[in-house]
């Protein structure tokens, strides 16, 4: 980023804005992730119905099924991947300052990465029937 006012405008190659050349990849990633999330969303709705009000043992049995645990982990990873791109698009529209925008995008990506990792961690522990936390972490 140069400090010159004139250097900050859009750059062109053969009269086509450079961002128009690679912007499609991000758009396509957002669309593909959404297409994967949608059927998983239906499955989440049916799962929410199954597990609503369920006791601890019933939920534990549900997680013991590897298909359930695997689909839930997949949902967590793909969903947070999707919202990462979706939030970037929202920030690009509403935060005009490049520095603030990049900082916010980076911060949200970090948050979503941590949330996805925490989800998978919790899901794996439930699927394996691990002792309740903080077992294994000094307790």
């Amino acid at each position: 980023m140069s400090g010159q006012v004139k250097g900050n405008g859009p750059r062109f190659k053969n009269n086509v804005k450079i961002s128009e050349r690679h912007g499609a990849g991000e758009w396509l990633a957002e669309r593909v992730l959404l297409v994967v999330v949608l059927p998983l969303g239906l499955w989440v709705a049916s799962t929410a119905f199954t597990l609503a009000g369920a006791g601890y043992d019933a939920v534990q049995d549900w997680f013991a099924n590897r298909l359930n645990a695997g689909l839930l982990a997949l949902t967590a990873v793909v969903f947070f991947g999707y919202v990462s791109v979706a939030w970037k698009v929202i920030l690009e529209d509403y935060v005009p300052q490049p520095g603030t925008r990049k900082a916010l995008v980076a911060l949200l990506n970090l948050v979503f990465l941590v949330l996805a990792a925490a989800s998978v961690f919790f899901i794996v522990r439930m699927a394996l029937g691990s002792a309740p936390l903080p077992a294994g972490f000094g307790a």
Binding site: Y56, V59, Q60, A76, A118, S119, S130, A131, P132, L133
Partner: peptide
């Protein structure tokens, strides 16, 4: 995620 955490904490 909070629900998952509560499950993992027993």
């Amino acid at each position: 995620v909070a629900w998952l955490g509560a499950l993992a904490f027993g």
